[in-house]
Write a protein that binds this DNA or RNA. Structure first.
Length: 402
DNA sequence: CATGCGTGGAT
DNA sequence: TATCCAAGCAT
């Protein structure tokens, strides 16, 4: 190769998945600018007190799809209750789930315990340093592995989350749909070029702080960004086009009758949900799914309960009684029909729960299933309740305890 | 790769 | 009220 050809090669712009990468000099200026801003503006957060991998790991799991303000009190309580990886590995599952109650996405904490047990068995009780090992742990994917590797161990690993994709898509005018899982590797490739090799943890966190404070999804004002001079979409006035993000599907409606049944000693019937799936292993009042009423035209007009017709309500109560008898082995007297409709929106489902109230007569034989208990309200705090259950109970209290 | 998996806050 | 989210991962 001649000297001339060599120069041509050097000047040719490097492409990362068709995205033109900056020259080295600009990359270094960018790192300096971003890290200087971070040093001044970074938030003081409980998990930023030191670089302990366990503390960082717990925070990253909690922060998945969850806001910082929501996480902080849970984090402080969790670290107090389970201060070490061994403590987490050995924890009682109900105690563990109780520490997560209200935080959502409960498989996160079960997976984290499984990972803690993996660490105890395979890694001498210490978080592995190699990102290829970290990502083998249950509940740790590409983002969390990169976050732990860079923040706890100072390795130059990208940690691409929603913030990073949003910031990068605006910086480089990337129109790849950030909702598509396959596009994450585009942003990973760019981060591998940009990341500061001396302060990779700060660099990744700077992206996230920037994304949550200035480079936000809404009310975005690029002119106030510390890195505006690097921002291609700002310089070209196209920032409102980025990021490209396809819309989520709407939550599908599901209809239930929630049966709040009290026995002669003042205890209520609770059912433990299956160990897999939605709200796994959590407790609710019995829930009986209602079918939609379909007209001959094929159009759903609602559930029987929602039609608020006396004759139909009676029909529902008969169905509920039938179900309570066959599935729960009880034959209560239903007192209210229903007294309120509770709604709860999940990511993918919208529950409509028509709440019914009933009592068991003293002399009745009781033969409830194995996953059901009679529990007094004073003991409710020992059971892990999901949102819909809390709402049903609040609905009951507001109706009968005023 | 699309879908399942929670919750509370902002607009 | 309806919609969109907020530091994703397992399957």
């Amino acid at each position: 190769m001649t000297q001339i050809e060599s120069n041509v090669t050097e000047k040719k712009q490097k492409l990362i998945f068709d995205i033109p990468m900056w020259p080295q000099e600009k990359i270094e200026r960018f790192r300096e600018t971003l890290l200087s801003w971070y040093d001044l503006e970074k938030r003081e957060l409980p998990w930023r007190k030191n670089n302990d991998p366990y503390r960082i790991w717990v925070s990253e799991i909690m922060l998945q799809q969850t806001r910082v303000d929501t996480v902080i009190p849970y984090y402080l309580n969790f670290m107090k209750t389970f201060p070490t990886i061994k403590g987490l590995a050995d924890a009682n599952e109900d105690v563990l789930l109780k520490a997560w109650e209200g935080l959502g996405y409960y498989s996160r904490v079960r997976n984290m315990q499984t990972a803690a047990q993996q660490i105890m068995e395979n890694y001498d009780g210490k978080m592995p340093v190699d990102p290829k090992e970290i990502i083998k742990l249950k509940g740790i994917g590409p983002y969390t592995a990169g976050a732990i590797a860079s923040m706890a161990f100072g390795l130059p690993e990208p940690a691409v989350d929603g913030n990073v994709m949003r910031v990068l898509s605006r910086l480089f005018e990337i129109d790849a749909d950030i909702a598509k899982p396959g596009n994450r590797k585009i942003f990973e490739g760019i981060m591998r070029e940009l990341i500061d090799p001396y302060k990779p943890g700060d660099f990744n966190q700077a992206f996230m702080d920037l994304g949550s404070s200035i480079c936000t999804p809404k009310n975005y004002h690029p002119e106030s960004s510390p890195i505006k001079e690097f921002n291609q979409s700002y310089l070209k006035g196209t920032w409102d086009k980025f990021p490209v993000k396809s819309k989520k599907k709407k939550a599908k409606p599901v209809y239930y009758v929630g049966a709040i049944i009290k026995n002669s000693t003042g205890a209520f019937l609770l059912e433990k949900r299956p160990m897999q799936g939605l709200l796994a292993n959590m407790w609710t009042f019995p829930l009986i799914e209602e079918e939609l009423v379909i007209q001959e035209t094929g159009i759903a007009i609602g559930t029987l309960t929602q039609l608020k017709d006396e004759e139909l309500t009676e029909k529902v109560m008969k169905n509920v009684m039938l179900e309570l008898g066959s599935k729960y082995g009880i034959r209560p007297t239903l007192m209210e029909a229903p007294f309120e409709e509770v709604q709860h929106i999940f990511s993918h489902l919208k529950w409509f729960v028509a709440v019914y109230y009933g009592q068991i007569r003293v002399e009745e034989p009781i033969n409830i299933p194995e996953n059901c208990y009679w529990v007094e309200p004073s003991d409710f705090d020992q059971y892990v309740f999901p949102g819909p259950q809390t709402k049903m109970w609040q609905s009951y209290l507001s109706k009968f305890k005023k």
